[in-house]
């Protein structure tokens, strides 16, 4: 079996007295859609923040293809192929939809100031634009390319956030509640896109409260509660796991 692409090893993150992640360990297999679930405040977003390099962990480490990446800066993690989206729509609201996607192509087509001044970066700009348009097209946003990102309805903003991430052609993408603000029909379409994406070889780590989406999409699910690992297994196993049911009932959320 191929080694896991991402290893979360004994990870701990403390904020002052609060332990947001407590010795958490799990592996993400290459090419999987891996769900990370848990009640509100369980530490899912914090886990993303540590994996993506936004925080340095208090303890433990994160490995990508065996290489330690915890402690690297966020752009350094991104350059190794791990790109994330944010829980609260985080976009360049003042820029156009296309410009947002263009920033996503930054790593593949790094701007060069001298080439830009001399006007010899035309091919690079064209390729970046083609890549950005492709990403928008994938999420059905082509028609909105010239709109300001901040003017989009919420569901489209979530989709654009993913388009920006995927314009970078990451190996691993971390999606933090990508389906919030989408109606069931939009969610259904997004789920199809996620499968399509996985089939192109991208590994997806997914945080989502929509249990229907999680159960329908994931190959494997890790459930955490109060920063700790609660259970891990296939959707079937998680759905019927007594601790998971307990945690969610205690947290007043339903497992569908």
């Amino acid at each position: 079996m191929a080694p896991p692409v991402l290893e979360i090893d004994n990870l701990t993150m403390r904020f002052g007295g609060l332990t947001a992640i407590d010795r958490l360990s799990f592996n993400v297999e290459r090419g999987a859609i891996h769900g990370l679930i848990g009640p509100n405040g369980a530490g899912k977003t914090t886990t993303f923040n540590v994996v993506s390099g936004f925080y340095k962990p208090t303890g433990g480490e994160v490995r990508l293809r065996g290489e330690t990446i915890s402690g690297l800066r966020m752009y350094e993690v991104a350059r190794r192929g791990v790109v994330r989206t944010f829980q609260h729509s985080t976009l360049f609201a003042e820029l156009s939809v296309l410009e947002n996607a263009l920033i996503g192509t930054h790593m593949s087509f790094p701007p060069n100031i001298f080439a830009a001044m001399a006007g010899v970066d035309k091919a690079n700009r064209r390729a970046a634009r083609a890549r950005a348009e492709e990403a928008l097209d994938f999420f059905g946003l082509s028609g909105l390319a010239e709109e300001l990102a901040g003017d989009l309805p919420h569901g489209h903003q979530r989709a654009l956030g993913m388009a920006v991430a995927l314009a970078a052609r990451p190996d691993v993408v971390l999606l933090d509640e990508p389906f919030t603000g989408m109606n069931p029909e939009e969610t259904g379409r997004m789920m199809e896109l996620m499968v399509k994406l996985r089939n192109t070889g991208v590994t997806i780590l997914l945080v989502e409260h929509d249990m229907h989406a999680i159960m329908g999409l994931c190959d494997r699910i890790t459930c955490m509660s109060f920063g700790r690992l609660l259970a891990e297994g296939s959707p079937q196993e998680i759905r019927h796991h007594p601790d998971v049911i307990e945690a969610y009932l205690g947290g007043a959320r339903h497992v569908a």
Partner: peptide
């Protein structure tokens, strides 16, 4: 593209860095 990146850094440095 350098100028676009300047704007990106201004408006949302977190997302720029994640990109």
């Amino acid at each position: 593209p350098v100028g676009l990146t300047f704007h990106a850094v201004h408006w949302q440095d977190k997302l720029a860095e994640a990109s």
